[in-house]
């Protein structure tokens, strides 16, 4: 049983080349997990009909939760464009104004209709300062 240093070098070279191709190639352009509001507006009619994901911030002052009809309305923005989102069901616990969200659905009647609202958490983990309590907003009966 003898070793094959050449095979080892070749395997590592192939692996390195594959990694470079993924990292520096244009896979990033083709692999779009969600569209920004600007891209969605720019796409125009192309974005209609298909199930897509929209990502951005929940614009302050636009959250409208109606517990009786189970309807949640808010605006998703990237600072440039503003998309109205109509959702069914209570949102995740961390949902609030200004937080990042990804919503999955389709454009219907000029609005983005979704039943899947996902909250993006930042990489910040902060302990409450003295006297503070965890800032958890529940969309209870009386709204946020």
């Amino acid at each position: 049983m003898t070793g094959r240093p050449l095979a080892a070098i070749a395997a590592v070279a192939v692996a390195g080349a594959a990694l470079a191709w993924i990292g520096m190639g244009d896979l990033g352009e083709n692999l779009v997990y969600y569209w920004s509001p600007s891209e969605l507006v720019a796409a125009g009619a192309k974005a209609h009909g298909a199930t897509i994901r929209l990502g951005g911030q929940v614009e302050a002052g636009t959250v409208d939760w109606n517990p009786d009809t189970n309807q949640l309305k808010f605006v998703v923005t990237d600072g440039q464009e503003h998309i109205k989102v109509a959702s069914v069901g209570a949102p995740p616990q961390m949902f609030r104004e200004g937080i990042g969200v990804v919503v999955e659905g389709t454009i219907k009647d000029g609005q983005f209709a979704t039943d899947r609202v996902m909250v993006k958490h930042s990489n910040e983990y902060r302990a409450p300062e003295d006297g503070e309590k965890p800032d958890i907003v529940t969309l209870s009966e009386d709204g946020p």
């Binding site: 692996a15 594959a18 990694l19 993924i22 990292g23 990033g28 692999l31 779009v32 997990y33 969600y34 990502g55 990804v102 996902m118 993006k120 958490h121 930042s122 990489n123 910040e124 983990y125 902060r126 302990a127």
Partner: peptide, 28 residues
């Protein structure tokens, strides 16, 4: 193993739901 650096960098290379890596400057 090629996929391990890709997995690690995925949150920086592409848009994702998962947040980027935390560091001592983003955590208490």
């Amino acid at each position: 193993f090629v996929n391990i650096p890709v997995t690690y960098m995925s949150v920086r290379w592409w848009r994702s739901l998962h947040q980027v890596q935390s560091s001592s400057s983003t955590m208490s």
